[in-house]
Each structure stands twice: as C-alpha cells, then as structure tokens.
Write a protein that binds this DNA or RNA. Structure first.
Lengths: 342, 342
DNA sequence: GTGACGCACTGAATCGTTTCACCCCGTCGC
DNA sequence: GCGACGGGGTGAAACGATTCAGTGCGTCAC
C-alpha cells in the first residue's frame, strides 16, 4: 500500500518545515549540517520527517548541486564473469568515496551503449567507465566533452582518453606461440564479431605469432562467431567439426573463455578428446576456466586490477583539476593447463 | 579536453534560446514536440544546441516530471551467473518500455543494499527489483511506501509485496530425494550464510527430504560457508575432507552451483572421483554446470522467466492503478547429470 | 550598562526543465 | 468586411533542495 495517495504529492522540505513549525532552511540544516541545529529542534524536525514519510528528492538536490554522486560502468556483457570481475575492482576502488556504482549492460549493441551513455550524461553523473563496442566511435568524444570518461579493457590510439587495458595483441601472440610450441601447425581462431576491438586485436596477435613462427598465412583458420558467449562457442564447435578432416585445425584459440568453454563442451560431447584431438586456449582466465571439464589453458588478464586502475583514473579525472590523461596497459600472461597439454 | 571551462556552466535551454533567437518555450518544444515547431525554427534551434554542446539536464526534467525513466535491479551477487541471467530476463521485459535498467551489486551486504535502495528511491526511479539479503527486513516496507518494489527470487510470507520466485524448499527436497534415490544415506548440505533466505529454504527442503526418507536427523551434515562463491565451495571441500572417514558424507547438496563447482574442483584435484567418492548436486543450473569437469547435477530454476515475470509485475505496479500484489512461484526441477550418476 | 559576539534560525533566490495560458497574425467562410 | 480558427511562438510559474545574507537574542567582557 502506497502511503501517498494518487493525487497527493510526496512530502517536501516545506511540508516537513510546516509540520515541525520551523523554516525550510532549518530542515535543510538538519539534513546537511545537523550540528548547527539545536538538539530539540533537530528532534522535532526528525519526528516530522518520520511522520510524513519524507524522502529526499535527489533530482532537486542534483539540480542545485549540478552533479550526482553516481558513477556508471557501461559494459559489453554482464553475463561474462570477466566483466563482473572488472566491476568488482571498480567497486573496491570506489568504496571509500561515497559514490554509488551503477552497472549498465549493452550486450554488444551500439544503440544500447549510446542510450546508456546519454542517459548517464544527462543524469550528470560524476563519471563513466566504459568498455565500448567500438572505441573509435565519435560518440565517446561527444560524451567526454562534458563527462569524465575512462575506457576499460580497450584503448584509443591517441591519448584523448584515460584507459586501463590489457595488451590484447600480446595476449593473442602468447596464446598462439604456446600452441605452436606444442607442435600445432594449423590453428583455428574462434571469435567475433570483428566489430569488437578485443576480437580484432587478439586475432591480430594470433596472426603475428603465426607469421613469426614461419607458418603460412593459412595456418590460422578464422571462424567468426556472432558473439562471444557460451552458445557461440558450442556452435563454432559444430562448424569446426564440419571442416574436411584434411585441413581441420588441431588447436583452437578462442577470443574469450566463454567461447572456449562452449567449444570444449561441444567437442567432448561429440566424443573427441581435448587436447589430443583438439587443443584449446581461451582468453581472460575466468574462474570457471580452471574448473572446466578439461581445465582450460587461458590468457590471464588482471581483471580486478584493471577495474581498480580504471576507477582510480576516473576519480582523478573527476576531482583533480591538474588531471592528465593516462593510458595504463597491463601485460597478460599465459596460464597453461590440461586443455593444451597431453 | 572538457568543452566547459571551470567556472562556466553547461549550456541550458535559456542559453540555447538566446543563441537561436527564440524563447525558451520553443526550445523545449523542439525537444519534446518537434512537430509543433516550424522546420526553419527547429533547424535554428538544433544548430544552436549543437554549437553550444547542449546536454539536457535530467535532474531538472525529473524534478519537474516527478519521476525518472529508470528502474533498478538490486542484486546479491553480480558474479553469480544466475543473477545476471535474471537480469537478462528483466532487460527483455523492459526493452519496449523506454526505461533504462541499472544494476546494483550488494555482495550480500545489508548496508550496501540499504544504501542502494535509498539511493534509487531518492532518485525517484519508476520501480525497484530486489533480491534481498533478508526479505523480512523492515526497510523493504519503508521503501515500498513510496516506490514500487518487487522481490525477485524470494517471497514474503504475507502478501505485502509482488514477488517472483522459485520454490526453494521444493528444490532442496528434489535434490536430496534424488541423492537418496541413488543410495546415499549421509549427505552434506554446503552453503551459507544462513542469513540468506535461499540458503535456509534449500536447507529446510533437504531436511524434510531426509525426514520423509526415514533417515535420522544426523543424516544431513551441515557445512556452513561464509558466502556462496566458487572459493567458498573449494574451502568447504577442505573441511569435508577433514571429517573422520567414518561419518563422512557420500554426497553433497550445495546451496548453489558456484559452491558446487568449487567443491567439485577441490575434490577432483584432491584425487577423488565424482560421483564415486562424492556425489554432488548444485542449485540454479547455470550454464557452467553442464560444462564442468564432471557435468553437474543441479536444481534448475527458470532464470530468465523469473526476471521477466518480476519485471512485468513491476511495470504493472508502476503503471496500473488497479494493481494488486501477486506472488508468482516457479517450481524448480532436477537436471540429473554425471556428478550423481556413476 | 553597553557593545561585540556568536548561536539558532529564517526565507528569498537559485538550479534547468516543462507546462500552459496567452498573444499575434494570416487564412478561410460567409 | 468580419469573426472564427489555428499554427507558431512566448514567458511566467512550478518542481524541491540548498545556500547565504540576514535577524533576533542571550551571553560575556570590560
């Protein structure tokens, strides 16, 4: 049952003031500088608030203050543990700053991303952390004209933004170098869509590793998926199995762990062995990677550190007038597990 | 580089009006009812907006409108795929209502939960979806006095709230009945903290199943964990292994899949076999359950349907004056996999 | 006794948007 | 030629919290 009947409005400071027999300025003081109000008056005001069910109107506060006490993290995929671990890192860095963190899931959709960015900006949030679908989008510049914006898990080539990211090209290299070390000469790259920068970079690293290893251009078989989910990985397994056995890859490097785990599941369910029939490397090293049917070799990114670093950059940008943009890059490393070692 | 210099303020409708040589009412019309403005004037105004980098101030809009176009989902644990799948369901139900969904992670902490609830309420959001730490908390009533609030994945005994939830007691029964069917007579319940209602109910169901099966009260060995994460599951494995072999359980029912997967990992790494040495049942049936080292038997909840149903209840409560509270309960079912069947 | 001081409290002005009563003027029907 | 109509535009008022220049008054030092 709503206390407020349809038609009546919520109690405002004016209503509280009237009920308590004081001026609205005093009510505001009780709210913001309780020490400046005598205990007796304070008690009266608080009683009135309780009775009227007074709820501060944040919109009005913000309008006056010009800013809200919120930061947003706009991310590609909440269902991917990698991003929620990044969010954890952000959360920690933010914990003692009395800011609230709101999470926004874009699901790789640029339109959803744009809507969230605009929304947050119009709310005059303190700042935005963003893992963008496309880091080169002009929208980012537009938003950053007014709102501190830090790019997470990606970078711009120029130094127009703060960012905290892992070196995806290096990660891709690492993965494929490892597979080549294990004797593989024909390797699948599984991931997509190519609109996503991480996918492009990891693919790029894989290509470079092939080239450096002296393998032909067709050593890397690219299997493009519509997304980077578990289901996409399974479906990629289907396609991989459909290749003529003559030039079927003996190893797969997946653009992230979700895809790798999906692929792994499909392969083992089809009665094949990992790594004997197909070696698999993932990317991110989420917790589930180590717990998989066959523990998954993966390129580890420092997930929470990444979030933490990004949040610290954002706080600096939002509060420090002498702020200078900074690009922090983490170097990933490879965690070798059974999925690549027989 | 911020366009707005320190000291200068963002452009407002008044500034735009001045720049375009029209009244502020016309600017507002361009924003909200573009058809009522002649094309020539509209163009002039839009040009002025572009030039000044005008960004609508959502606080001011909301203050006037009395409401924001946002709903929040306050959840126990973003890192748990179960909850992100619920969020997906909410998202879908919400998609065609021009509302934005903000996700808030409480990490099982009542203080964080309270902070988020108050924050959302003060923002005058359209409504709040909540998976509470403690559904009986009086705070929920206080919030619901002003803001539509739907409980997700929990229920109140009374009908003071809308809710969409699975029957956790039935789920707990299902799990343990299955284990008893498989011949187990000594079963561990792994989960915690007991402050979490889901944990209590699932435990309750497990107890009932033991009783109904004619097993003694000590057939169920309760191992309380500090949380419901992967790491908690591993650590519970440690404790389970430490029990004297005489009365060590032959099966474990875990309060959720994360714990079950952690336990599974610990057990297999310790060189024991699942299910031969220890059978394991999880709860939620997240995607990773089926992909685990040993595919995990789990109690399935309709995750996205749950989110969708909750969101629909919320929308109804927020918009339909004739709204009546409703408790929707889904009945879970058991998905038997290798972790319980040798 | 007087002036200075400071505590407690007051209330008008402000933030930026939306709404709505109102105005202006060209067009149309008769 | 006149009144009615309506498209296009205007700007004051309102939303609710905060701020800040004041007011009133009791206390204290000299």
């Amino acid at each position: 049952m709503r206390v407020v009947q349809p038609g009546s409005r919520d109690a405002s400071v004016v209503d509280v003031a009237a009920a308590a027999g004081v001026s609205l300025g005093t009510v505001s003081n009780v709210l913001n500088r309780p020490d400046r109000v005598s205990p007796a008056t304070r008690a009266k005001v608080q009683a009135a608030m309780l009775e009227l069910g007074f709820v501060r109107n944040e919109s009005a506060r913000q309008l006056r203050a010009g800013q809200s006490r919120v930061i947003g993290y706009v991310m590609l995929d909440v269902s991917n543990p990698f991003f929620t671990d990044v969010a954890r890192g952000i959360d920690r860095a933010t914990a003692d700053s009395d800011l609230s963190l709101f999470l926004c899931n874009t699901d790789n959709d640029p339109r959803r991303e744009a809507a969230y960015l605009r929304n947050l900006q119009q709310q005059r949030v303190q700042g935005i952390l963003l893992t963008p679908v496309d880091a080169s989008s002009a929208l980012l510049d537009e938003i950053a004209r007014h709102t501190p914006l830090v790019i997470v898990d990606r970078t711009r080539d120029d130094d127009s933004f703060c960012s905290a990211a892992a070196d995806d090209v290096a990660g891709g290299r690492l993965a494929v170098e490892h597979l080549v070390d294990q004797g593989h000469r024909r390797i699948a790259f599984v991931g997509g869509p190519t609109a996503i920068g991480q996918v492009r970079d990891r693919h790029q690293g894989a290509l470079e590793a092939c080239r450096d290893a002296g393998l032909g251009e067709d050593a890397l078989v690219t299997i493009t998926t519509p997304g980077l989910t578990f289901a996409d990985g399974r479906e990629a397994g289907e396609r991989l199995a459909g290749l003529p056995s003559r030039n079927r890859p003996t190893a797969a490097f997946c653009a992230n762990d979700l895809v790798a785990l999906g692929l792994l599941q499909h392969v083992t369910q089809a009665g094949q062995r990992v790594p004997e029939d197909l070696a698999i490397v993932g990317f991110d090293d989420i917790d589930f990677a180590a717990a998989a049917a066959v523990p998954l070799t993966s390129v580890r990114q420092p997930r929470t550190s990444l979030g933490r670093a990004a949040a610290e950059l954002l706080l600096d940008e939002a509060t420090n007038p002498a702020h200078r943009h900074q690009q922090i890059t983490f170097t990933p490393d490879l965690v070798a597990r059974r999925s690549t070692q027989s």
